[in-house]
């Protein structure tokens, strides 16, 4: 379980996150949604320590991450997997080397055990046999799947996904969403997905946090989001003609 308590973050005079608190439970897909510039990615980066919040706490299963130093955070970071918006695969390494990287760095497994784990992760994301390709040889969807494979290589307790559907066609987006939801359920991971993709919201949003101008504006599930009376959230959800038609 991850708790965020009263998170504030500003860049200069610009207050990006303004007192956001929430609890994210394991085994369900938690979504943080909001328009561009609403502070979703900044909140996610505060949670994983890529940004330091100006105020507030991020607590991983009772461990206050914000109060830890670099060395103390390493233990929690080994339990975190993250899928980046642009996949962030290491260009100089093959798919297999990308997945082996955290295993090489932090485990004392034999080469055979590590290879088996890498192959298992690749099979899990339906990319068996693609071990020796370089990231430049992969499509956008394949890169995302390798990103997921690398993120789950260390058996994480917490999985963060920053806009996993960006730049993908609708069908591939659904594949990625389903994969994230399956992995979350299978390994009972605490998963947090930042997105503004309404297909993801409706498809896998078991718990949804809506951010508006850096504040928590609404919280609920994908069943509740359709019927909400919250004006800003309604404007966000039903911005597209397709969603408007669906509502009618």
């Amino acid at each position: 379980m991850i708790e965020i308590k009263n998170i504030h973050k500003a860049f200069g005079d610009h207050q990006v996150i303004n007192g956001v608190s929430a609890t994210f439970h394991p085994g369900i897909t938690n979504l943080i949604i909001g328009g561009s510039g609403s502070g979703k990615t900044v909140l996610l980066k505060c949670m994983v320590g890529l940004h330091e919040p100006d105020q507030g706490n991020v607590v991983y299963d009772g461990r206050d991450f914000t109060r830890m130093n670099f060395e103390e955070r390493i233990a929690i970071r080994k339990e975190i997997g993250m899928l980046f918006q642009g996949s962030a695969l290491f260009d100089s390494m093959t798919v297999e080397e990308n997945i082996l990287f955290p295993l090489n760095m932090f485990t004392n497994q034999t080469a055979q055990e590590k290879l088996e784990r890498a192959n298992f992760c690749l099979e899990r994301v339906n990319l068996a046999g693609k071990n020796h390709l370089h990231p430049s040889e992969l499509s956008g969807g394949m890169k995302k799947r390798v990103g997921i494979a690398r993120a789950i290589a260390m058996n994480p307790k917490y999985l963060f996904c920053d806009e996993p559907n960006s730049g993908l066609d609708p069908r591939t987006s659904i594949v990625i969403d389903e994969l994230i939801a399956e992995i979350t359920d299978e390994y009972q991971i605490t998963t947090i997905v930042v997105t503004h993709d309404m297909n993801s919201v409706m498809g896998i949003g078991e718990k949804i946090l809506y951010l508006y101008e850096g504040k928590k504006w609404w919280e609920g599930s994908n069943d509740e989001i359709i019927t909400t009376k919250n004006q800003e959230l309604n404007d966000f959800i039903f911005a597209s003609k397709f969603m408007k038609a669906l509502k009618k």
């Binding site: 890529l50 955070r73 970071r77 642009g86 962030a88 290491f90």
Partner: peptide, 16 residues
């Protein structure tokens, strides 16, 4: 390039 493509962030998330 590693910085702007978030590869450095990926290293940091891993605890490296």
């Amino acid at each position: 390039t590693m910085r702007v493509t978030e590869q450095i962030d990926a290293l940091e998330i891993m605890g490296i």
